[in-house]
Amino acid sequence: MSDALDNVNFDSDELNFDDFHLEDLDADSVVEAPAKVERDLSFFKNIPVTVTLEVASKEIALGDLMQAGEGSVIELDKLNGEPLDVKVNGSLLGHAEVVVVNDKYGLRLIDVLDSALSSVGQ
């Protein structure tokens, strides 16, 4: 690198903010931010995502898990009847309960977190 760049020193005493007269600015000289443009986000509708219904979880030592066998019970962190977590691509979307529709499991959304959808379209 150049020695000229290495020898640049900054002296805060050289700054003089008294020369700026912000109160003299008129409204016509202020540049406004452009209006937010609405975008067509319909192309997002065809992007596949993975929806997961997480019943519960438990942190367990690997040694304890290796000793588990048929008939072993591992207590999980959710209570009976508590809403289950719905995750989309690993991020929490909301909560749901399990339902059966035409002999297949399904989920009924109980609530959807606002934070999960707030960044869509921004």
Rank of each mutant, 00 (worst) to 15 (best):
G71P: 03
A61V: 08
E32T: 14
V120I: 15
R108Y: 07
G81N: 09
L79V: 04
T50Q: 12
L41C: 11
V55F: 10
K45F: 09
D40R: 03
P48S: 00
S115F: 05
G121L: 08
A96S: 15
N89H: 07
F17K: 04
Q122D: 15
G94Q: 04
N16E: 11
K45P: 00
S91K: 15
E54P: 01
N80L: 14
N9G: 07
G69V: 03
V120Q: 06
G81M: 03
S72L: 07
M1T: 09
N102T: 12
L84S: 02
N9M: 10
N89W: 09
L84Y: 03
V100H: 01
V120P: 02
D18M: 05
G106P: 03
M66Y: 04
L79Y: 05
G63N: 12
A35K: 15
V49K: 02
L65W: 04
F10L: 13
G94Y: 02
F44H: 06
L117A: 05
Y105T: 10
I47W: 01
L76P: 01
S72I: 09
V37H: 03
A33W: 11
K87V: 05
D13L: 02
F20E: 06
N7M: 08
I110S: 09
G90A: 09
L93V: 06
N7E: 10
F17L: 14
S42D: 12
A96V: 03
K58Q: 14
G69D: 09
T52H: 04
V100W: 01
L109V: 15
D28K: 07
E70P: 04
L65E: 05
L22Q: 02
D18Y: 01
Y105P: 04
E23D: 15
H21N: 14
N46F: 08
N7P: 00
N16P: 00
M1K: 07
V120T: 13
I110E: 13
E38F: 05
V99F: 02
K78A: 10
A56K: 05
D18F: 04
V98Y: 01
S119Q: 13
V120H: 07
V8N: 01
D111T: 10
R108D: 10
K104D: 06
P48N: 02
E70I: 14
V73L: 14
D26S: 12
L15Q: 04
E32I: 12
S12I: 10
E54W: 02
